[in-house]
Simulated assay, not measured.
Amino acid sequence: MTIKVGDSVPNGSFKHMTAEGMEELSTGELFGGKKVVLFSLPGAFTPTCSAKHLPGFVQHAGDLKGKGVDTIACMSVNDAFVMDAWGKDQSVGDSVVMLADGNAEFAKSLGLDFDASGFGMGTRAQRFAMIVDDGKVTTLNVEEPGAFEVSSAEAMLAAL
């Protein structure tokens, strides 16, 4: 079953890199008492993700935060080392939290995983973006396969 607007985000956790090394971040810590834009993409360093999706959120981070967003988070089914390297490659700094859902557990709990085995990528998360207010989904935009239209930073700005 796929998560929908009005649902609470399921319990789970991510890995991410900090100055102290790899750390775990629970959904409670990420979403509790905050307004969060979480966007997901099929893979770090992939063409659309690197050329458009992540850069748009870096570029518009100030605008999103100006509309009351506490945290902007990028999730992918990659490991924390890859997400950290990609964040550095994309000059993310502290504008976007780079989250690893290495085993696709969170994507599966949302019902937003897909089989990318045909591309040699295994299980991945679909391309989507959501606004979560204190753990409750208020906006959910899921892309059609191969599309990049409704999950952009601009779409999230319009939804705020």
Rank of each mutant, 00 (worst) to 15 (best):
S8A: 14
P10R: 05
P10K: 05
P10W: 04
N11W: 14
G12P: 00
S13L: 12
F14S: 00
F14H: 01
K15G: 15
A19R: 13
G21H: 12
M22D: 09
M22G: 07
E23S: 14
S26R: 02
T27S: 07
T27V: 04
E29N: 10
L30I: 04
L30Y: 02
G32Q: 14
K34S: 04
V37F: 05
F39D: 01
L41F: 10
G43N: 06
F45N: 02
P47Q: 04
T48P: 06
C49N: 05
C49I: 10
H53K: 02
H53R: 00
L54F: 08
L54C: 10
L54D: 03
P55S: 07
G56F: 04
V58L: 10
Q59N: 11
H60Y: 11
H60R: 13
H60V: 13
D63A: 14
K65D: 12
K67I: 13
G68F: 02
G68E: 02
G68M: 03
G68Y: 03
V69H: 10
V69E: 10
D70G: 05
T71R: 07
T71G: 07
T71F: 05
A73D: 02
C74M: 07
S76V: 02
S76T: 06
V77A: 03
V77S: 01
D79K: 05
D79G: 04
A80C: 11
V82K: 06
A85K: 15
W86D: 08
W86N: 08
W86E: 06
G87N: 04
K88W: 12
K88L: 09
D89H: 11
Q90C: 11
S91L: 08
V92W: 07
V92K: 07
D94A: 10
V96Q: 09
V96T: 08
V96C: 12
V97N: 08
M98L: 09
L99N: 00
L99R: 00
A100C: 12
A100L: 07
D101M: 01
D101P: 00
D101A: 01
N103Q: 12
A104M: 03
A104S: 08
S109W: 05
S109G: 08
L110G: 00
L110I: 01
L110R: 00
G111F: 03
G111W: 06
L112S: 00
L112H: 00
L112K: 00
D113K: 05
F114H: 06
S117H: 12
G118W: 11
F119G: 15
F119L: 15
G120W: 09
G120I: 07
M121F: 15
M121W: 09
G122Q: 09
T123G: 13
T123E: 09
R124F: 08
A125T: 09
Q126N: 12
R127Y: 05
R127I: 02
V132K: 00
D133W: 07
D133F: 08
